[in-house]
């Protein structure tokens, strides 16, 4: 079995090495794009089964964002929803034979956490302004400025480590059991990986929501997510 802490290079595009997580991510992107494009081509006021599922997913994301941030979920819908959907699908690729989840490699998790980190800063500046956002580091006292700065790094790092550790360990354990035991023995562990993957996707999305919401600051309570905005 390969070392899960290393990435395999499949080929090079000029000087750029294309590794397995990147290739799998591209495949997932293509799949998700096709799925999104095909499933939203014929949306109707009277929804079918697939449209109902999609609407349930979107309204659930909106509800989660609204409950966490207490504000209009529309500006955050696409980012939070994409993070959850990508992490979930990426984690569940563990059940495909020969496919290693991109989230089992720290580069993907770090990319996700970096996006959340940048989004936190962007939404914080957007919601509070430069001075307001910087002032949050001096809360509740200026003494807390070093700790708050460190917290920005550590909580981002914790996002990376949590997702990476859970997914990588699941893949690692299944690989070990599969190499030691029979064909069907890892199936319960794989099922457990599905549950773990879903839970980790939910945790990652919720933590991203909490971080972004805390940075964006408090605003007057927005309408319920299923009442107002239509922008993605």
């Amino acid at each position: 079995m390969d070392n899960p802490l290393t990435v395999d290079t499949l080929f090079h595009l000029g000087p750029v090495p294309i590794t397995t997580p990147v290739a799998v991510t591209w495949a997932l992107m293509i799949g998700l794009t096709l799925f999104a494009w095909l499933s939203t081509r014929r949306l109707a006021l009277v929804p079918g089964t697939l449209q109902t599922v999609l609407e349930l997913f979107v309204t659930t994301v909106d509800g989660q964002v609204h409950d966490t941030m207490q504000r209009d979920p529309a500006p955050f819908r696409a980012l939070i929803g994409t993070i959850f959907l990508f992490v979930l699908v990426a984690n569940w690729t563990a059940v495909l034979p020969g496919v290693e989840p991109p989230t089992a490699h720290i580069e993907t998790d770090a990319a996700l956490a970096m996006i959340v980190f940048v989004a936190t800063i962007a939404y914080g500046i957007s919601g509070r302004g430069w001075r307001g956002y910087l002032a949050t580091f001096a809360e509740p006292s200026w003494v807390m400025i070093p700790l708050n700065l460190v917290e920005q790094i550590t909580r981002t790092f914790s996002l990376v480590v949590r997702l990476f550790g859970n997914v990588m360990s699941g893949v690692f354990v299944v690989g070990i059991v599969l190499s030691l035991a029979g064909l069907f023995l890892p199936i319960p562990l794989m099922a457990l990986d599905l549950l773990t993957g879903a839970v980790q996707a939910y945790i990652f999305a919720v933590l991203a929501t909490v971080f972004i919401g805390a940075a964006a600051g408090e605003t007057p309570v927005a309408a319920k997510p299923d009442k107002e905005d239509t922008s993605p």
Binding site: M29, L32, T33, A36, W37, S39, T40, L43, A44, L45, P47, Q51, L54, E55, F57, V58, T59, D62, A74, R77, A78, L79, G81, T82, L85, I115, D226, D229, T230, S231, P232
Partner: peptide
Amino acid sequence: VWILARFLFRPVSQII
């Protein structure tokens, strides 16, 4: 994020 915003979240939220 951009693709899903363009092809998934926007159309679904619009139809809602």
